[in-house]
């Protein structure tokens, strides 16, 4: 019993902000992990990260206008995702560049909006809150919206599950089989936008990439079928998030009066998970990596 109290300190489960963080964090972790598996498989890690960064412009705008921050993140992320799919750049290099240029514009806007926010007399802590997240300050009133966003993203992914798998094998193959590839791409981009903005809310725009890519990359190192990859990614992301919240709460006792950031622990746990997964996963034959012949 004492050991348990050492790990889960008294008051942890009765604490309101902790409750909210646990619920919203779990939602963000699950959705990011599932969407992330497809993002990594489709080679869109950069796009996923860019979307998160760009969405911070929405977060700052919401902050400036006093709107619900999740709506701000969401609106801009959805807009950017739609735009990226609409541009429909097939060539991987050009797609990277378009993503990059858009990322620059989004971050520039973020800079401007944050600046305008500070001259309006608000605290300059907004930059840190928006970019790095602040899990323990999420209002409880945000829970229903956050869970709805998570639910919609999961339904969207479930709807396009099979064509997504097929097209990550080969886009030509999916198209030849009559899959509506463009519509599928759009739905995936929107699911990505939902996942990213939810994660941006919780761990911050800049670190949401960790939730998106980390668990997925870890699961893909050893899972050999799609269901297991999704399951493991969810398990790793979820465990890291709750573990991170717990450790951050504990850290108030380690260094009195000053807690360590949640995002730090979450990322560290995810990275440990990734390294362990790499050790657990059988290394594919070297020739398989270079040239299957």
């Amino acid at each position: 019993m004492h050991l348990l109290e050492l790990i889960v300190p008294p008051g942890f489960l009765a604490n309101g902000p902790v409750h909210t963080a646990l619920i919203v964090g779990a939602g963000a972790a699950v959705v990011s992990a599932i969407v992330g598996v497809f993002t990594v498989m489709r080679g869109q890690s950069f796009a996923g990260h860019a979307l998160a960064d760009v969405s911070s412009a929405g977060g700052s705008a919401a902050f400036l206008l006093g709107l619900n921050p999740l709506l701000g993140f969401l609106g801009v992320a959805a807009l950017a995702a739609g735009g990226m799919e609409w541009a429909d750049v097939r060539d991987a290099r050009e797609r990277d560049l378009v993503t990059g240029v858009m990322l620059g514009v989004g971050l520039g806007l973020t800079a401007l909006l944050l600046y305008l926010g500070t001259i309006r007399g608000s605290t300059s802590g907004a930059a840190i809150a928006i970019l790095f997240g602040s899990m323990f300050t999420i209002p409880a009133s945000l829970i229903p919206l956050a869970l709805t966003v998570a639910g919609v993203a999961l339904v969207a992914i479930a709807a396009i599950y099979r064509p997504l798998l097929l097209s990550s094998l080969s886009a030509d193959l999916a198209q030849a089989q009559g899959a509506r590839v463009r519509r599928m791409g759009l739905v995936h981009a929107l699911a990505l936008a939902l996942a990213v903005s939810l994660a941006a809310m919780t761990v911050g725009a800049i670190l949401s990439t960790a939730l998106l890519i980390g668990p997925a990359a870890a699961a893909l190192r050893f899972a050999d079928r799609p269901g297991r990859a999704l399951g493991w990614a969810v398990a790793i992301g979820w465990a890291a998030t709750w573990g991170g919240i717990l450790l951050a709460y504990d850290s108030f006792y380690w260094t009195p009066g000053h807690g360590w950031p949640v995002s730090f622990f979450i990322v560290v746990l995810i990275f440990i998970g990734y390294l362990l997964a790499g050790l657990a996963g059988r290394r594919p034959a070297r020739q398989g990596l270079e040239r299957p012949a």
Binding site: L169, S170, D172, L173, D224, R228, L289, P292
Partner: peptide, 13 residues
């Protein structure tokens, strides 16, 4: 399709 390069980590048997 013509020879496609399949990622060794793609979780499809």
């Amino acid at each position: 399709p013509q020879k496609i390069s399949i990622d060794p980590y793609l979780p499809l048997r």
